[in-house]
Amino acid sequence: MAYQFDFVDVFKYTDVLARGVGLTVTLIGVGGTIGIAVGIAGAWARGYSGNRALEWLVAGYVEAIRNTPFLVQLFFIFYGLPSLGVRLTEVQAALLAMVVNLGAYATEIIRAGIEAVPRGQREAGASLAMTRMQVFRHVVLRPALQKIWPALSSQLVIVMFGSAVCSQIAAEELTYAANFIQSRNFRAFEVYFVATGLYLVLALLLRQGMRSLGGWLVFGRRA
């Protein structure tokens, strides 16, 4: 007997899915914003702080994060940190893991953008008696972000896909919702099919959102 697909059973749980989508959007919204801020700070520390120890520290952070899986980072934060007395809720741990993860990638991406800004611009800034910090903030940062905005958007999408793993510490995002529904109605394939479709849509929306945000924030066009 062939298997009968039944998607109606999934859509009975629309409210559960909606709450899951809500948390996934919140995670990527908040985590993405803070993560990019961390990335900017990290890129500054590596190229403009003039502090060797800080440079090495940030380089170590970037390498450590980029060469370990997100899942292990998440477990380390959620299960490992309490033994140091840092107790986080599921959502806090998920957010922290996403910020730490995105921060490392964003540091590397933004640093590449900064290196692509012509040297003359920095020197021009310095010749106007700007401090290093002022040159970074007013001269280098915006063209750097313009250059790497598409790469940063892609990284954000990757981090959102990574957030599916947060279901494993019971943060109730989209994948958690899917797991919950399939444990109720045993329609695993249908549920994950719908969830996958939702991720596809979320990714498209996130890309579009980043394009609008970039146009407004980084490229200075009022969209």
Binding site: A188, Y199, L200
Partner: peptide
């Protein structure tokens, strides 16, 4: 490229 690897794993595993 447009969906999470975890979802792909689930779809193969349960599909």
């Amino acid at each position: 490229q447009g969906t999470p690897l975890l979802m792909q794993l689930f779809l193969v595993f349960f599909g």
